[in-house]
Nucleic acid binder design. Sequence first.
DNA 1: GCCTCTTGAATAAGTCGTATGTAATGCGTT
DNA 2: AACGCATTACATACGACTTATTCAAGAGGC
Lengths: 233, 233
Amino acid sequence: MTTPAQGLHTHVLDTLGLEIAAGDCPPGRVLRTDELARRFDVSRTVVREVIRVLESMHLVESRRRVGVTVRPTEEWNVYDPQVIRWRLAGSDRPRQLRSLTVLRSAVEPVAAGLAARNATAEHCAALTECALGMVATSRGQQLEGYLRHDIAFHRIVLNASGNEMFARLGDVVAEVLAGRTHHQVMFEDPDPAAVTLHVRLAEAVREGDAEGAERLTKEIAVGALHELDVLAP
Amino acid sequence: MTTPAQGLHTHVLDTLGLEIAAGDCPPGRVLRTDELARRFDVSRTVVREVIRVLESMHLVESRRRVGVTVRPTEEWNVYDPQVIRWRLAGSDRPRQLRSLTVLRSAVEPVAAGLAARNATAEHCAALTECALGMVATSRGQQLEGYLRHDIAFHRIVLNASGNEMFARLGDVVAEVLAGRTHHQVMFEDPDPAAVTLHVRLAEAVREGDAEGAERLTKEIAVGALHELDVLAP
DNA sequence: GCCTCTTGAATAAGTCGTATGTAATGCGTT
DNA sequence: AACGCATTACATACGACTTATTCAAGAGGC
């Protein structure tokens, strides 16, 4: 493993989190603190701090006399960006991407509608800039550049909605888009229809057309879901 | 104060979390570990574990030589049920309830549509039972009983959707419903229209009517938002 | 004889105090 | 202005003690 380990705590936490998220430690498995201390060659102090964090994410439960038991998946705090990252790195990434994309399809249309009502001039300017960037990078194997603009675009919409809960999903969407781009075959250029929809969405938001923005975002989401259907198991 | 303190760690964590969420420690304020240790009369070990947890929630940031600084609200992990509970206990509960209810209005209709497609017989049975319970407790100042059924109802819909991200919002919805019931004046019985909508929603799910379920859930959400408009500042 | 309740020992996490390492800040010197 | 040293507060470590929980053995009742 030999991670550069910018901090012992971070290293142990990341390793354990990844293992649990990947299912290497199935629910019910018990870990012992001193065992972990020996395994990672750190003090029990560090291990206990890591356990406390994993406990706050509901990934494990620590009980006296019995040890640290891994909790069933249904109890995890799956909205924690850290947990999402760990799970997307694991084996059931396709299933994970699917449930996250369904979440997007529910949230983003409503957020776009609100954005059309609440967006500031700065939001609109940034949005059109991103849309133009997506157009510019939509051809010729510039998927990384396209991804950057795509992430920024959706983040702006979520922020412009004015709703804090939506805004905080920006990181989740970013993980989904990045995971999708990097996971699937990267031969093809992005769907031209999607690019057009983004441009039109930026226009709708600028013009304050809430219903249009919501509808266009729904179309984008449907496209993303369809793409997953075609390319994922 | 004077918590029974089922665990030193829990007590310190809860107290600090509440204070930060309530804004008693504004963003930028620095806390010192040994200062906290003295204040709570616990060892620095306990304080450090608490800090690590708060750090994993992005409520604070710990840097050497400078101390533990409270992070701005926009960076908090606002989907962590613990954070939600702390914030709902604080002063800007109305604003918080509003943004959470908007989130519900985006997510629950889609979840209900999926539930209509995916619900098992057990789900449907439990759902109608909850709906009947809501009807039975909808009159005569039985708000606590009504709340219990209401929470169970929405949790079942979210679970029946088959989408993990939706299912994990059950706790959030429960907090919102509980917060709404306990915060506002509890004189009046619940809105009869809402009760009817829930009954019809249970029917729609049982009959596999996805569009109907989605539409009915939207109506429930609109009603909840309207109620907030009327009763909140 | 079998079942139940009590009691006690073993175990592993919880807590604490202290010692040492380490990085960032601030001040003073050149 | 730039460099370097001292200070500071967190990071890590270790070991001893405490406490809660579990499991099992034994006492008692049926």
